[in-house]
Simulated scan of single mutants.
Amino acid sequence: MQEPLIFDGHNDLLLRLHQRDISAGKDGFQGSGGRHIDLEKARTGGFGGGLFAIYVPGEQGLSRDMDEMMASSYDLPLPPQVSWETASKVALSQASYLINLERDGALKICRSTKDIQDCMTSGMMAAVMHMEGAEAIDPDFHTLDVLYEAGLRSLGPVWSRPTIFANGVPFRFPSTPDIGPGLTEDGIRLVHKCNDLGVMLDLSHLNEAGFWDVAKISTKPLVATHSNAYALCPHSRNLTDRQLHAIRDSDGMVGLNFAVAFLRPDGRMVEDTPISTMLDHLDYLIEQLGEDRVGMGSDFDGAVVPGEIKTIAGLPNLRLAMREHGYDDALIRKLCHQNWLRVLDLTWT
């Protein structure tokens, strides 16, 4: 069950490389030494590529106590806003890792859906440069212009902490995403700039007020690269039915987040979470959005994922579960990669 290839809406490989959790060479990503993602696991799992996130960790670190996320409720403190001076250095470092992996022939940075399709045909891993949290973007957009030329084609205005553009949601359960104010004036300008460039806006970490601001002013489909259904898991990170319907009406899409705390009805960070819980979310998202607007947004290398999958080498287990659940070949192809290609094509052209 290595086919169809999976194109994924979110991973944190570049953060792993930046933090030296793995190496970029033969003993790391380019071999079998990665945590969730490396080239050998990709071949085993039928992983065609996806959005590779540039993410700036906080200067004081993230207080994400796993014991706390095992409780019946939690509200984890977030690190403070990161300065542009700090963030831009980290972002350029992570972009450089991706560029050098391309130079080494390990993957290709894709700037068009044709690039992605060519990679999937040839067996080359397709990488879209993405930014999770826009701390590294200055209000004059000089950094954005430079990163765009380097291949940046997707951007989330926030991770959970605030930026000069917007506010995110904390790791809070149970909680709605209706937390804090919407876009700033700079945030409104950022939406227009991304629309003009053809950079996809990712709404996965944005709070509800910011979501509705983007929905009001953006001319492009609304996309949440790695989010789940609030109706099944009442976590601040998940999307309400009203948000899902706005995404549907814009012809956008949602990538299923594999992170167990955003899947489980109890919001707990427990690896022993069955694939059937993922299928519950897929069923619900398809019901609310339609089968053309749902894909994968794993959060590999940035989250605890179900033990039945564990790494990208375990993706055949997900395909098999979808088939046994009753999804036909056409729907599985859409969920695995066709829907991502569809929405990226709408956004980039």
Rank of each mutant, 00 (worst) to 15 (best):
E3M: 07
F7Y: 15
H10M: 09
D12C: 14
L15C: 12
Q19F: 05
G25F: 11
G33F: 09
R35M: 15
I37Y: 08
K41D: 07
G45Q: 00
G46Y: 07
A53E: 12
S63A: 13
D65P: 15
M66G: 07
E68C: 11
S73M: 10
P77Q: 13
Q81D: 11
V82Y: 03
S88G: 01
S93F: 08
R103E: 13
R103N: 13
I109R: 12
C110P: 09
C110V: 12
R111W: 12
T113Q: 06
T113I: 12
I116C: 01
S122I: 01
M124E: 11
M125E: 00
A126N: 02
A126H: 04
M129V: 08
A134G: 05
A136G: 08
I137T: 02
D138V: 03
P139F: 01
F141W: 03
V146N: 06
P157I: 08
R161D: 10
T163K: 11
A166S: 15
P170T: 13
S175V: 09
S175H: 08
S175Q: 08
P177E: 15
P177Y: 13
G180L: 10
P181M: 14
G182I: 07
E185P: 08
E185L: 14
N195E: 01
G198Q: 02
M200S: 04
D202P: 03
E208P: 01
A209L: 01
G210C: 04
G210Y: 03
F211C: 03
W212A: 00
K216A: 02
S218W: 03
P221I: 06
L222I: 05
A224M: 00
L232A: 05
H235R: 09
N238Q: 12
D241G: 15
Q243W: 11
Q243F: 11
S250C: 13
G252H: 05
G255Q: 15
A259T: 15
L263C: 15
R268F: 14
M278G: 03
D280N: 14
E287C: 10
Q288V: 14
L289G: 00
F300A: 05
G302C: 09
G302N: 07
V305I: 13
T311G: 07
A313K: 10
G314K: 04
L315F: 14
L320W: 07
R323G: 07
E324I: 00
G326A: 05
G326V: 11
D328V: 08
I332F: 02
I332T: 01
L335W: 02
C336Q: 05
Q338C: 12
V343H: 01
L344Q: 04
L346H: 13
